[in-house]
């Protein structure tokens, strides 16, 4: 996690906030793949926000934040993020990237879902990609309208209202040259509509890419407690800290290599407690037994009693 400072705040349309973040230590922000999101901790929770630029040598990160339910991280940002506010965020994660082998790209967005598509559009312009855009918004609820005016490719359809968007999406899906990949981003209902239209038109699943506004795969996790073997020592593992590092701080050093849950070196025995496995090493049998875990990524969903010296 890195500390960022809010360097700019402005409206991205009704109910939408655009924030510009720069690393607080003055470093250059890391580049990111188009369509990436940034996990931001705000108001005590981590949410993923789409990055708006193409990610190539960025001087800052721009994110779009729609005011969500009261008490959520987005509402907190709307109410509290001012120029100079510091925020903690993880590195950008890519899970909605343009497919390099696509012959053409069809971008479908509803409401705030247009944000990762802006990133795709900038990248498409840079690399000379063939792209078509279909976006819809509620009446008077245009999101990032002027940026869209600027980036819209020759084939662009902008509609108002759910029914019009549904029809425009279906029409666009029905006439794409073979080799096209489609990318959809919007509220859950929109994703379901795109899926069903694509299925009706016999689109292979591999040509359709849907951005879910989920938490990133390796979120900070919840805090939990670990008990060290027979010593009776108790260790508090805060959110955002791995068990491996918490053990380090307590003077218990496990072997390690990848710190990414792939090498299996940081395996530790578990005597009791429920494990939230997040590694790529352990098989279903290991998980069912529940007596080992990989300390670099996995966590406890209850107190864990560990087999450590």
């Amino acid at each position: 996690m890195t500390t960022y400072r809010v360097a700019g705040r402005r409206s991205g349309g009704p109910g939408v906030l655009e924030l510009t973040l720069v690393p607080d230590d003055g470093a250059q922000p890391a580049p990111y793949v188009p369509g990436s999101h940034l996990p931001v901790r705000a108001g005590g929770v981590v949410n993923a926000y789409s990055l708006l630029d193409d990610g190539c040598r960025p001087s800052a990160y721009r994110i779009g934040v729609r005011r969500g339910c009261p008490g959520g991280g987005s509402a907190w940002l709307h109410d509290n993020a001012r120029t100079g506010t510091t925020l903690v965020a993880g590195p950008p994660r890519s899970a909605f990237a343009p497919v390099l082998s696509a012959r053409s790209h069809l971008l479908l967005g509803a409401g705030i879902g247009v944000t990762p598509l802006l990133s795709h559009l900038r990248a498409a312009r840079r690399w000379g990609r063939q792209v078509e855009l279909v976006v819809g918004s509620g009446a008077g609820r245009d999101v990032f309208a002027s940026e869209l005016d600027d980036l819209a490719p020759p084939r662009t359809t902008r509609v108002v209202g759910r029914a019009a968007l549904r029809a425009a999406v279906r029409e666009a899906l029905s006439r794409q040259p073979i080799g096209t990949h489609a990318y959809a981003c919007g509220p859950d209902g929109f994703a379901a509509e795109v899926r069903s239209a694509a299925a009706d038109l016999a689109w292979p699943a591999g040509r359709l890419h849907i951005e879910h506004f989920d938490a990133p795969q390796l979120d900070a996790g919840d805090p939990f407690t670990a008990e060290l073997g027979d010593t009776g020592r108790e260790l508090h593992v805060p959110a955002g800290t791995s068990l491996l590092h918490a053990l380090d701080a307590a003077g218990v050093r496990l072997d390690r290599m990848c710190e990414r849950g792939v090498c299996g070196r940081c395996e530790v025995g578990v005597r009791s407690g429920d494990i939230r496995h997040r590694d790529l090493v352990l098989g279903p049998a290991d998980r069912a037994r529940g007596d080992v875990m990989l300390a670099c990524v996995s966590r406890g969903s209850t107190t864990l009693r560990l087999e450590v010296p």
Partner: peptide, 10 residues
């Protein structure tokens, strides 16, 4: 051969 084919064709 592939020109003019649309997604949905196999």
């Amino acid at each position: 051969f592939f020109e003019g084919r649309l997604v949905g064709w196999r």
